[in-house]
Design a binder for these strands. Structure first.
Lengths: 207, 207
DNA sequence: GGCCCAATGTTAATAAAATAACAATGCTCA
DNA sequence: TGAGCATTGTTATTTTATTAACATTGGGCC
C-alpha cells in the first residue's frame, strides 16, 4: 500500500489522540469528533481511514481500541525499530524526552555525543556513547533510525557515517540540508523556518 | 502580495543559504547552484523568486547581497518583531539558542516558566519570567509572537492567555493541538509525528 | 558587430492534497 | 415496522504545489 505522506502524518496524530480517548474511557469516537480534536475536517479523517481500509462496523463511531490497532498495523513495523539520537544537547534531550513512557514500536536505544561530560552517562533516559562508538553501536543494537540534533557543522559528516553503517532513516533537525543515497529516507525540519513563516503571516495580517 | 506558504518557507531557507554564501565570499550564485545546496530544483528557485518579483540584472547569477535584502523586504516586518519562548525546558532552550547571534528582524526578548530555579535568571541568553508576569511583559515588551514549548497539559491554557494579551502568532511545539481566534496565526509542529513518518517509510522501503 | 549559449522569467501541464458532494447504511423512535 | 436521520465510505471537484516546456535575455567570443 502506498500512502500519501500527509496521511501518514495524520495517522500518527490520530493514534495519539485516540490514546488520549482511551485515558478518558471513551471507547467510541465519531469522525467529526476526532477531527475536532485535531482541528481538521471530518471528511479528511474519513478519507484517511478509507485509504487504510478501515471501516467501523457500528454507526456509533469508530472503536477506539480497534482503530489504534489498525493504525499501528499500518504505520508500525512488525517488530520494534531502534532509534538513536545523535547529539544530546538541548534539542537532543528534548527529543529523547518524548520517547519516555511512550508505548510505541520505536525504541530509543542510544545517544551519541563527544562531550566528555556526557559520554557513558544516562541522559534523558538513554545512554550516551562517544562518536567513535557509532559504528559499533549501530551494528550491536541494530539501530535503523538516526535523529540528528548536532551543531550544523557536524551534520554532513555524521550523516555519511551513519548511512555507511546501515542507518535507513534520518530525521534531520539541524539547519544543514543533507543528501542521502536512495534507499535511505530523509526527513528534515527547520524550526527557524517555521518561526519566520509565523512572522511573515503575522506581518501580512497587517496587525 | 499573497505568497504560498511553501514559498515563504523556502524564502527563509534561501536567505540562510545566501548568508552562508556571503561567508564564503561568494557574491553571485546561479539558480541551479542555490537549488543544489537545498536539494531542490532550479525551477523551483526561479519560480519562487519570480513570485516575489525579483530578477537578476546580470546573467552571472543572482547578486547574493541584493537577494538577501529582497527576501528580507518580503518576509521581514519593517520594524523588528519581538518573540517570547513560553516554557524554557530543553526544547525551549534549544529554540532560544537558535536566536543567538542571528541577525534577523526577530528578537527573542523574554522567556516564561514557573520553575523557581529558572525565574529571573538569564537562560540561553534570555531572561525568564514567571507565568504571572505574562500579561505585563507581553505589553511592556510589545511581544507579538509566542513559541510554545511547555508540557502538553499547559498548552491550551497558556495559549488562551497569550492570545488575550495580544499575541498575534503562535508556534506550537507541544503535542497538544490548539485553536486560536481568527487574526492569530498558528503554526504547529510535532516531532514525534515526523519521526513516526520516518519509521513508516523506512519500513515500507522494506529494507 | 553578430552568432552562440548559458541562464533566466513565465506560461503550461502534471501531481498531490484538501474539500465538497452524495449515496448507502443501519440505528432510533414513533 | 418503517420513516427519519445521523454518520459513514467513496467519487468528483477544486485548490495548491511541483515539474516541465519554452521563449527571452544579454554577455562572451570570433
Amino acid at each position: 500500500m502506498k500512502l500519501p505522506g500527509k496521511t501518514v502524518e495524520r495517522l500518527s496524530e490520530y493514534r495519539r489522540t485516540l490514546l488520549e480517548c482511551l485515558n478518558e474511557k471513551r471507547n467510541f469516537i465519531f469522525s467529526h469528533d476526532l477531527a475536532a480534536r485535531l482541528h481538521i475536517t471530518a471528511v479528511q479523517v474519513r478519507r484517511d481511514l478509507m485509504l487504510i481500509g478501515y471501516s467501523s462496523v457500528l454507526r456509533k463511531g469508530y472503536d477506539v481500541r480497534e482503530l489504534i490497532d489498525t493504525i499501528g498495523k499500518i504505520i508500525d513495523s512488525d517488530s520494534s525499530m531502534n532509534v538513536a539520537v545523535i547529539g544530546i544537547g538541548n534539542l537532543g534531550r528534548a527529543v529523547a524526552g518524548y520517547f519516555k513512557g511512550k508505548r510505541s514500536k520505536l525504541n530509543l536505544v542510544a545517544s551519541f555525543d563527544n562531550d566528555p561530560q556526557k559520554i557513558n552517562k544516562v541522559i534523558s533516559g538513554v545512554k550516551c556513547y562517544p562518536y567513535n562508538d557509532i559504528e559499533r553501536m549501530i551494528k550491536e543494537l541494530d539501530i535503523r533510525i538516526a535523529i540528528l540534533t548536532v551543531p550544523p557543522d557536524f551534520a554532513r559528516e555524521l550523516t555519511e557515517e551513519v548511512v555507511r553503517y546501515g542507518i535507513k532513516g534520518i530525521m534531520n533537525f539541524t539547519t544543514t540540508p543533507l543528501n542521502v543515497p536512495s534507499g535511505v529516507y530523509l526527513e528534515e525540519y527547520d524550526m527557524i523556518t517555521s518561526i519566520e513563516k509565523v512572522a511573515y503571516f503575522v506581518k501580512e495580517n497587517k496587525i
